[in-house]
Measured scan of single mutants.
Amino acid sequence: NQASVVANQLIPINVALTLVMMRSEVVTPVGIPAEDIPRLVSMQVNRAVPLGTTLMPDMVKGYA
């Protein structure tokens, strides 16, 4: 099963993503693939993302 990107903490809106904010985990439904974590660094989410939430492509500005 493919690992997805999961919030490692509350990720506020309009804050640049850092490695420490994200972890990889096998979850259902599948979200952004874990291998895209380096690409996500410095991008921003378009809504607050609670701890443990799977990041979906539509949550990250400029990802999709």
Rank of each mutant, 00 (worst) to 15 (best):
N1L: 15
N1G: 15
N1C: 11
N1V: 15
N1T: 15
N1D: 15
N1Y: 14
Q2C: 15
Q2N: 12
Q2K: 06
Q2M: 14
Q2V: 10
Q2S: 14
Q2G: 15
Q2I: 13
Q2A: 09
Q2F: 13
A3M: 14
A3C: 13
A3N: 06
A3Q: 13
A3T: 09
A3I: 06
A3K: 07
S4M: 03
S4G: 05
S4W: 02
S4I: 02
S4V: 01
V5W: 02
V5P: 01
V5K: 01
V5Y: 00
V5H: 02
V5E: 00
V5M: 01
V5S: 03
V6H: 00
V6G: 01
V6F: 02
V6L: 14
V6S: 02
V6A: 01
A7N: 01
A7I: 03
A7P: 01
A7V: 07
N8G: 08
N8A: 13
N8V: 08
N8C: 07
N8T: 15
N8E: 10
N8K: 07
N8S: 12
N8Y: 03
N8R: 08
Q9R: 11
Q9M: 10
Q9S: 10
Q9I: 09
Q9G: 05
Q9P: 00
Q9V: 15
Q9E: 10
Q9H: 09
Q9N: 06
Q9A: 12
L10C: 13
L10H: 15
L10S: 13
L10R: 11
L10G: 10
L10D: 15
L10N: 13
I11N: 00
I11W: 02
I11Q: 01
I11C: 03
I11D: 01
I11F: 02
P12M: 06
P12Q: 10
P12A: 13
P12G: 09
P12K: 09
P12N: 14
I13V: 09
I13E: 15
I13C: 12
I13L: 12
I13A: 10
I13K: 12
I13F: 07
N14E: 09
N14Q: 08
N14I: 03
N14K: 05
N14V: 03
N14P: 00
V15C: 05
V15Y: 14
V15H: 11
V15R: 11
V15F: 11
A16G: 14
A16W: 09
A16M: 15
A16V: 11
A16Q: 14
A16P: 12
A16C: 13
L17K: 00
L17H: 00
L17N: 00
L17T: 00
L17M: 12
L17S: 00
L17I: 11
T18D: 08
T18K: 06
T18R: 08
T18S: 14
T18A: 10
T18V: 05
L19S: 12
L19D: 09
L19Q: 13
L19W: 09
L19E: 14
L19I: 12
L19H: 08
L19C: 13
V20W: 11
V20Q: 13
V20A: 14
V20Y: 14
V20E: 13
M21V: 03
M21E: 02
M21Q: 04
M21Y: 05
M21T: 03
M22T: 00
M22K: 00
M22D: 01
M22C: 03
M22L: 15
R23A: 10
R23E: 04
R23H: 05
R23S: 10
S24K: 11
S24M: 14
S24Y: 07
S24F: 06
S24G: 12
S24C: 07
S24D: 08
S24I: 07
S24E: 10
S24H: 10
S24N: 06
S24L: 05
E25T: 06
E25S: 10
E25D: 14
E25L: 05
E25Q: 08
E25C: 06
E25W: 06
V26P: 09
V26S: 13
V26Y: 13
V26F: 07
V26H: 10
V26T: 12
V27G: 03
V27D: 01
V27R: 08
V27Y: 03
V27C: 05
V27A: 09
V27H: 03
T28P: 01
T28M: 10
T28G: 08
T28N: 12
P29G: 04
P29E: 07
P29Q: 04
P29R: 04
V30E: 15
V30A: 11
V30F: 11
V30Y: 11
V30Q: 14
V30C: 11
V30N: 13
V30T: 14
G31N: 01
G31P: 00
G31R: 02
G31Q: 01
G31D: 01
G31L: 02
I32L: 05
I32G: 02
I32T: 03
I32A: 01
I32Y: 02
I32K: 00
I32C: 04
I32W: 03
I32D: 01
P33D: 07
P33C: 06
P33F: 12
P33Q: 05
P33M: 07
P33Y: 09
P33W: 08
P33S: 11
A34K: 06
A34V: 12
A34I: 06
A34T: 07
A34R: 05
E35W: 07
E35N: 11
E35R: 06
E35K: 06
E35A: 10
E35Q: 12
E35D: 14
D36L: 09
D36E: 11
D36T: 08
D36C: 07
D36I: 08
D36Q: 12
I37A: 09
I37N: 00
I37F: 03
I37C: 04
I37Y: 03
I37G: 04
P38V: 11
P38W: 07
P38D: 09
P38S: 14
P38F: 09
P38T: 13
R39C: 15
R39M: 15
R39K: 15
L40S: 00
L40N: 00
L40P: 00
L40Y: 02
L40D: 02
L40A: 00
V41H: 04
V41M: 06
V41R: 06
V41Y: 04
V41E: 06
V41W: 03
V41T: 09
V41C: 07
V41N: 04
S42H: 12
S42T: 09
S42I: 03
S42Y: 06
S42M: 10
M43G: 04
M43C: 06
M43A: 15
M43L: 13
M43H: 14
M43S: 07
Q44W: 12
Q44F: 11
Q44V: 15
V45P: 03
V45D: 01
V45G: 01
V45N: 01
V45A: 06
V45Q: 00
V45H: 00
V45T: 14
N46M: 10
N46V: 14
N46K: 10
N46C: 15
N46D: 10
N46I: 13
N46Y: 08
N46R: 12
N46F: 10
R47C: 08
R47F: 08
R47G: 07
R47S: 10
R47T: 15
A48V: 10
A48W: 10
A48E: 13
A48L: 11
A48M: 08
A48K: 10
V49R: 02
V49K: 02
V49M: 07
V49S: 02
P50K: 10
P50N: 09
P50T: 11
P50R: 07
P50E: 13
P50M: 07
L51Y: 13
L51F: 11
L51N: 14
L51P: 11
L51W: 13
L51K: 11
L51H: 11
G52F: 04
G52A: 07
G52E: 04
G52S: 06
G52C: 04
G52Y: 04
G52P: 01
G52D: 11
T53R: 08
T53K: 06
T53M: 15
T53E: 08
T53I: 08
T53D: 11
T53C: 08
T54G: 02
T54K: 03
T54R: 03
T54N: 01
T54A: 05
L55Q: 00
L55Y: 01
L55H: 02
L55D: 01
L55M: 15
M56N: 05
M56S: 06
M56E: 07
M56Y: 11
M56L: 12
M56G: 05
M56K: 09
P57S: 07
P57E: 07
P57F: 05
P57H: 08
D58W: 10
D58N: 11
D58G: 08
D58K: 09
M59A: 07
M59W: 12
M59P: 02
M59S: 05
M59T: 05
M59E: 02
V60Y: 01
V60F: 05
V60K: 02
V60G: 00
V60C: 03
K61G: 07
K61V: 10
K61F: 08
K61P: 15
K61N: 13
G62Y: 08
G62N: 13
G62W: 07
G62R: 05
G62T: 05
G62L: 07
G62C: 15
G62D: 15
Y63M: 06
Y63D: 03
Y63R: 04
A64S: 14
A64N: 12
A64T: 14
A64H: 14
